[in-house]
Amino acid sequence: MQKVQIVCVGGLKEAYWRQACAEYEKRLRPFAQFRIVELSESRLPENPSPAQIEAALQKEGKQILAACGSGVIVPLCIEGKEMDSPSLAAYLQKAGVRGAGRISFVIGSSYGLVQEVKQAGQMRLSMSPMTFPHQLTRVMLCEQIYRAYEILNHGKYHK
């Protein structure tokens, strides 16, 4: 069974976001060993300097890479590749065939991701050219991972 995780900086404050992620986590159980890893966001002053932001991103990047460990890393970033749901399903399938022990999707903080995390990725993924709150992005990603497995297993969820 494929291991898939979402590694994200920061938590979900509102209960409805947590409930949505929990629902997709439950739905994914038959298809993959799925988990969400929440890392602490670096504390920054109200108006941080570029150097403070870079230092925070470096610190978060080290935590992210440690949490990802070995396997495929897929950072989410605006310059990433946009793909439709069947293409994401095919990507997950190919990663499994190539022997990827784990696939880690990475959602950074509100300041994004440090370059080292992006470079560690086998593919950079963009959900859209639009900007979304990180909480919504996490729910959308959970849904798309679930949809991908439904596609691969010829389920009725994806029409």
Rank of each mutant, 00 (worst) to 15 (best):
M1D: 10
K3D: 10
Q5A: 11
I6E: 09
I6K: 03
V7L: 02
V9T: 09
V9K: 00
G10V: 13
L12F: 12
K13S: 15
E14L: 12
R18T: 12
Y24V: 09
Y24L: 03
K26L: 15
K26V: 13
K26D: 13
R27T: 13
R27N: 07
R29A: 13
P30F: 08
P30M: 10
A32N: 04
A32Y: 12
Q33D: 15
Q33K: 15
R35K: 14
V37A: 06
V37E: 09
L39Q: 04
L39A: 08
E41D: 13
S42N: 12
P45T: 15
N47S: 15
N47M: 14
P48T: 11
S49R: 13
P50A: 10
P50S: 07
A51T: 12
Q52H: 06
E54Y: 04
A56I: 11
K59T: 15
E60K: 07
E60F: 00
E60T: 07
G61Y: 01
G61K: 06
I64L: 03
L65W: 00
G69T: 02
V72Y: 03
I73K: 01
V74D: 03
C77Y: 09
G80P: 04
G80A: 02
E82N: 03
E82R: 05
M83S: 02
M83Y: 01
M83K: 00
D84P: 05
S85W: 00
P86W: 01
S87Q: 06
L88W: 00
A89N: 05
A90K: 08
A90R: 04
Q93T: 01
K94Y: 06
K94S: 10
G96Y: 02
V97A: 07
R98W: 03
R98V: 04
R98I: 06
R98E: 04
G99V: 08
R102L: 07
I103V: 10
I103P: 01
I103K: 07
S104Q: 08
S104Y: 00
F105Y: 05
I107G: 06
I107F: 05
G108P: 02
G108H: 05
G108R: 04
Y111G: 03
V114N: 10
K118W: 07
Q119E: 13
Q119K: 14
A120F: 05
M127K: 04
M127I: 14
P129E: 11
T131E: 13
F132L: 13
F132T: 10
F132P: 00
P133L: 05
H134Y: 03
L136A: 14
T137Y: 06
V139G: 13
M140S: 01
L141S: 02
E143T: 10
Q144A: 05
I145N: 08
I145H: 09
Y146N: 12
Y146T: 10
Y146M: 05
R147C: 10
A148E: 09
A148T: 07
Y149P: 01
E150F: 08
E150H: 11
I151A: 12
L152F: 07
N153L: 09
N153Q: 06
H154W: 13
G155N: 08
K156N: 13
K156I: 09
K156S: 15
Y157M: 06
Y157C: 07
H158K: 03
H158Q: 12
